[in-house]
Simulated scan of single mutants.
Amino acid sequence: MISAIILAAGMSVRMGSPKQLLKLGDKPLIRIVTENVLASSVDEILVVTGYKENQVSAVIKDLPVKTVINPCYEQGQGTSLAAGVKNLPVDTEAFLVFMVDQPFITSLLINKVIEEFKKRRCLALRPVCNGQPGHPVIFSYDLSAQLQQLAGDEGARPVLKKLGSRVEYFTVQDQAAIFDIDTPEIYESLKSLNKLTLN
């Protein structure tokens, strides 16, 4: 089983409002990201909520996903990832991690990551675009114990750093792998787009 964890619990302090509820077109980011993952070959999806939990859950309540509430979301992204990993099905072979501010990652890119992981059978695999490591990262379930210990706001970075050369990479041409909506300026520039594409 290949699972997915979508991190949608943060307060988005730099953005000034919760990213998960920002809209592109008529859809909030959490809805866009979740639908993109649902369109892929992922078998199970967990959405980790926290800040504005009721509003975020309401946006995706009709979708076939499992919601996990992180009561420690104020302590950072690491706690949300840990909460997601703790709730993975026991028969999970590997899992991908998604950020709510990357709505351009398509099912095509997700499936490429999964296919490459199945070929390599490594501990962690990350797409690279223009020489820059991107998302989504896929982890072997063998790393679940380490990821369940995460805290702070660095997400999976401490585990990836500890793995060092055991993290594998593969090149993609899709700019979505390295693009996120990180500032109000980027968001404002995207709101006028008619379709979700970077290419």
Rank of each mutant, 00 (worst) to 15 (best):
M1I: 03
S3F: 01
A8G: 11
M11I: 10
V13F: 08
V13S: 10
M15N: 03
M15L: 13
G16A: 09
L21D: 08
L22E: 13
G25P: 08
K27V: 00
P28Q: 05
R31M: 08
I32A: 10
I32M: 10
V37D: 07
S40D: 05
S41R: 15
S41T: 15
V42P: 10
D43S: 15
I45A: 07
V48Y: 02
G50F: 07
K52H: 12
E53D: 10
E53M: 09
Q55L: 14
A58R: 14
K61F: 06
D62Q: 13
V65K: 10
V65D: 07
V65T: 07
T67H: 08
V68F: 06
P71N: 04
G76N: 02
G78I: 00
A82G: 03
G84N: 09
V90A: 11
T92D: 01
T92P: 00
A94W: 01
F95W: 11
L96T: 11
M99T: 10
M99S: 12
P103T: 07
I105Y: 01
K118E: 11
C122E: 01
C122P: 00
L123P: 03
A124M: 13
A124S: 15
G131H: 06
I138W: 00
F139C: 04
Y141L: 07
D142L: 15
L143A: 03
A145H: 12
Q148F: 03
A151P: 04
A151F: 15
V159E: 02
L160A: 01
K162R: 13
G164F: 02
S165W: 07
V167S: 03
F170V: 03
D174A: 08
D180E: 13
I186R: 14
I186F: 02
S189N: 13
N194V: 06
N199H: 15
